[in-house]
Every structure is written in structure tokens, then in C-alpha cells.
Computed example of a mutant assay.
Amino acid sequence: MMFDPFLKLGISAILGMIIGLERELKRKPVGLKTCLVISISSCLLTIVSIESAYVFPLKDHITMDPLRLAAQIVSGVGFLGAGVILRRGNDSITGLTTAAIIWGAAGIGVAVGAGFYWESAFGVALLIVSVELIPFLINFFGPKQLREKEVMLQITVADEKNIAKVIEHLKRQEINIKTMRIKDVEENEHLLKLRAVIDQKRSTAELYYAIRSIEDIVHVDIESG
């Protein structure tokens, strides 16, 4: 059909837009425009790859792989995905979901370009369910470990003899300490660098007030994802 490529590009744009809106609503670096470009471009390259295998046959009866060009999209998009993966100063990694969304948008574009419309639509639905609904359900019904979030704490304690007491108070506040580093900063002041986990529903402000109420704490710095 003459208009079949245009139909594929249109469907790819709609599905890419759905994926991009999900990222846009979460204020992620890869949003609507990026997902649209990836999905449409992947679809276009897949169409070109398939059509060129039949429109421009090689001489001497050498056959072309219809998806040869499209196969390179998967590896090519990997470089784009790597650009949104960040390593913070506390050694935590962010951006993995966004990188996976980029790869998924490219996959949707390839699938639509190859003519798998219903499979592509179902794939987008599963993507949205996977990143939106399933984490929401896990927060209520999942194991305790999946209902916790990691925080990085920097606490300045007034006197070294108070360090053990402060740590004990933190445990009473249901702050589960995973790693701890102690550093002398000034005379009679000591810095505790802690990696801890708390309940997912607990706000950063609530955590700050709980820690700041502990005696002998001079400064508090909290980083929460």
C-alpha cells in the first residue's frame, strides 16, 4: 500500500508520545520530544531497511536481510541511553529506568516499522504498567525490603563519646544503617557519613526533624532519592 509507511510512522509517533508523556510527567531528562524522535526514527529506519531489501535487489542473486539496518538501531540507541545514566557523588546510580525507556521506545519503533501494530500497542501498555502500576502496588503489598528507600546522611556530632548514643537514637527512629564512616572535622566535632534505609512513605522533612531532635547533633545533611 502506498500510504502504509505513513500509517506506520503515525502509529509509531502516537505510541512514542505515550511513552514520552510518562517520562515528562515525572520531570525526567528524557521526555516527550526525545521519545518521539527515537520512536519515529527507529520506525523510519526499519521501513527503509525492509523496503530496500526488495526495491533494490543486489546483483548475482545475493539476497539482503530485510532487518539488517534495523538491527543496528538496538546497539546505536545504547549510546544515547548511556548518556542519561548518572553516578552521583555518593556512588548511587540514577537514570537506569530512563535509559531502558529509551531502548524500549526504539524497540516499539522497530516493531511498528515491521508491521506488528497490535504487538507494539500491547508492548507500550505493558511498559506503562511496569513503570507506573507495579511499583505502586509493591509499595502496598510487596516485601518490606521493596517498600524501603535509601538515604545518605551526614551528621556532625559534638563529642566523640556521643557517637554511640547518636547511633542508638537513629536505630530507635527506625533508621536502618547499612554503612558508616566516621571522620574528624574539627576539635570535638565528628562527621558521620551513613548510608541507611527508611520506609518509602517517610518524607525527607520528617526524617530531618526526627534526627535534628537528637541531642549533641550539630549539623544534619540528608540526600534522598
Rank of each mutant, 00 (worst) to 15 (best):
D4L: 14
K8P: 14
G10T: 14
G16W: 10
I19E: 02
L25G: 05
L25I: 08
P29C: 07
G31R: 02
L32W: 08
C35S: 13
L36G: 01
V37H: 09
C43A: 12
T46R: 00
S52D: 06
A53W: 07
A53K: 03
F56R: 08
L58F: 03
D60N: 04
H61Q: 05
I62V: 06
M64K: 03
L67T: 12
V77P: 03
L80Y: 05
G81F: 01
A82R: 01
A82M: 05
G83D: 09
A100C: 03
G104M: 15
A105L: 13
I108M: 11
I108S: 05
G109P: 04
Y117S: 09
A121G: 13
G123T: 14
N139K: 01
K144I: 08
L146G: 02
Q154T: 08
T156N: 06
V157I: 12
V157D: 03
E160V: 06
K165L: 10
V166R: 00
E174V: 09
K178L: 15
K183I: 15
V185P: 02
V185S: 10
K193G: 12
R195S: 15
V197S: 14
D199N: 13
K201V: 01
E206Y: 14
A210W: 07
S213A: 15
I217K: 07
D221L: 14
I222H: 14
